[in-house]
Design a binder for these strands. Structure first.
Length: 183
DNA sequence: TGCACGATGAAC
DNA sequence: TTCATCGTGCAC
């Protein structure tokens, strides 16, 4: 398995989002290596995207999104769950890809369908915010070229407040995969 | 300093 | 459909 380089993330966000499908999220902590295949993601395009946290501007919470690509943006939602994003595009362009569901591959216990459950199963919490994903113990891995996946495009979940941005087809998942958070 | 509200998940 | 639960952003 090959660690994806920073150049992978330094590209247009929807391209990165679609190409993350079928890749592997790897997290090694406390001597345990956990691996899950990414099967569902959402793209958040930048501070012009009304559904994106970065649309509020450069704040303490969103500063990671404004930073260089290839880093983890992890935030707490509803006071009890964590969600993980991968920061994309050049520094200053506040875009990211939310990881929504994983197919368990190695050492994953519990469910992985949904951004909060995914983080729990991978032992990802607020301490991981800002971590560089181009690293040995926390990264996205590629198992090499496989056959071209069939990708389904849908509106993003839980962003109804975002006006026309709520209708954009920026949620992507692998067609037919049983670990999608919801059809 | 106070307050409304989530890029959710689970229970009912 | 309702609710748990708290950090963030913005109003005052």
């Amino acid at each position: 398995m090959e660690i994806l380089p920073r150049s992978f993330f330094d590209r247009e966000t929807t391209t990165v989002a679609k190409e993350l499908l079928g890749k592997y999220l790897v997290h090694r902590i406390g001597g345990v290596e956990r691996i899950g295949k990414i099967v569902e993601v959402e793209a958040y395009l930048g501070d012009h995207d009304r559904a994106s946290h970065s649309s509020r501007g450069h704040t303490k919470r969103t500063k990671i999104m404004f930073g260089p690509p290839g880093h983890a943006y992890v935030y707490m939602i509803y006071g009890m769950h964590f969600c993980m994003n991968v920061v994309t595009e050049r520094e200053g362009h506040a875009s990211a890809v939310l990881l929504r569901a994983l197919e368990p591959v190695r050492n994953l216990e519990g469910r992985t369908k949904g951004p909060g459950l995914l983080c729990k199963a991978m032992h990802i919490d607020g301490n991981m915010n800002g971590r560089d994903l181009v690293s040995d113990d926390f990264h996205i891995g590629s198992a090499g070229v496989g056959e071209e996946p069939v990708i389904v495009k849908r509106p993003r979940i839980g962003v109804e407040y975002a006006g026309t941005w709520a209708r954009r087809l920026l949620r992507f998942y692998l067609k037919g995969n049983p670990f999608i958070s919801r059809a």
